[in-house]
C-alpha cells in the first residue's frame, strides 16, 4: 500500500512543487493553477492528493472560489485509491454541512458528496459486489465520476491490489463479482493486465511479502542509554563513597 501523502507523484510538475513547498500555497493566484492540475490528473489518470488538498484548503477559506465539479473530481480520484487515507483527508476539508445535511437538494455538492461517500463506505469495508451493484443502480454515480478517465479500470486495479495483499488464491466467481467483468473480459483482464494465472476455477495470486504470513518472534533490543545509569554507577564505585 503506497503512502500517498509522504511521497510525491513523478508526474508532479516543478511549478506545483513550488506552490506546495512555499507560501504560494495560500496565494489566491495559485487556485487556477491547482484547478488546471486537477483536470490534468483526471484526464491523464494519476492522482496527486497533496496538491489537491492544497486546493481544497483554498476553498475552505474562500467558499466563493470553490468549484463543485473540481471538488467532485478530487473526491472521485481519491475514491479510486480507497485503501489509503486520501478520500477521508479530502472529506475533512469540505464544509461541515456536506455530509450532515439531510435531504440535500438534487445535484447539489452535498448530495453528490454523500453519494460518493456511500460508495466509499462500501469499498472501505471491501464489499465490492455491493459497490458495483450500487454504482450501476443509478446513472448519477457514473455522471459524478465522469471527469475521471478510466475510473472503473483504475478502481478495478485497486480492488485487485487488495486481493493481491490479502490472498494466495481466490475463487473465480468471487473475484469476477468483485471486479464486475463478464467471463471473457475477466479472463483477459487476469491474464493480460494482472498477469495472474487461472487454474481449477481459482485465480492464483503470485506470492508476495504480504500474502504469505509467517510466524515471527521479535526479540528485544537494549539501547545503550537504557544502561547509562548502571554504567554510571560502576564508575561511581571507584570513587570513595561520600
Amino acid at each position: 500500500m503506497e503512502n500517498t501523502l509522504g511521497s510525491k507523484p513523478t508526474q508532479r510538475p516543478e511549478a506545483i512543487e513550488t506552490i506546495l513547498e512555499s507560501l504560494e500555497r495560500y496565494n489566491s493566484e495559485s487556485i487556477p493553477v491547482l484547478e488546471a492540475y486537477v483536470t490534468k490528473q483526471a484526464s491523464e489518470g494519476f492522482n496527486d492528493i497533496a496538491a489537491n488538498l492544497a486546493l481544497l484548503k483554498h476553498y475552505q477559506f474562500s467558499v466563493r472560489a470553490a468549484k463543485d465539479d473540481i471538488i467532485l473530481s478530487v473526491l472521485s480520484m481519491a475514491l479510486v485509491k480507497f485503501y489509503t487515507s486520501d478520500f477521508t483527508s479530502a472529506l475533512h476539508l469540505l464544509p461541515s454541512f456536506v455530509l450532515t445535511l439531510e435531504n440535500p437538494p438534487n445535484d447539489s455538492l452535498a448530495q453528490q458528496t454523500q453519494k460518493l461517500y456511500h460508495l466509499y463506505t462500501l469499498l472501505d469495508s471491501a464489499r465490492y459486489t455491493e459497490f458495483w451493484s450500487t454504482f450501476e443502480s443509478d446513472d448519477s454515480y457514473a455522471d459524478i465520476v465522469a471527469d475521471v478517465s478510466g475510473f472503473e479500470d483504475e478502481l478495478r486495479l485497486s480492488i485487485a491490489k487488495t486481493v493481491e495483499v490479502s490472498s494466495k488464491q481466490i475463487a473465480v466467481p468471487v473475484f469476477q463479482d468483485w471486479s464486475n467483468l463478464s467471463e471473457s473480459k475477466f479472463t483477459k483482464w487476469i491474464e493480460d493486465t494482472l498477469h495472474w494465472v487461472i487454474k481449477d476455477k481459482s485465480v492464483i495470486v503470485p506470492v508476495n511479502k504480504d500474502n504469505d504470513p509467517k510466524v515471527t518472534i521479535t526479540t528485544e533490543n537494549i539501547r545503550f542509554d537504557q544502561l547509562s545509569r548502571i554504567i554510571k554507577r560502576a564508575y561511581e564505585l571507584e570513587q570513595p563513597v561520600n
Binding site: 490479502s166 494466495k168 488464491q169 481466490i170 500474502n211 504470513p213 510466524v215
Partner: peptide, 10 residues
C-alpha cells in the same frame, strides 16, 4: 492470507 476458502493465520 486467504487461500480460497481457507484462512492462513500467523
Amino acid at each position: 492470507a486467504l487461500d480460497n476458502d481457507l484462512i492462513h493465520i500467523a
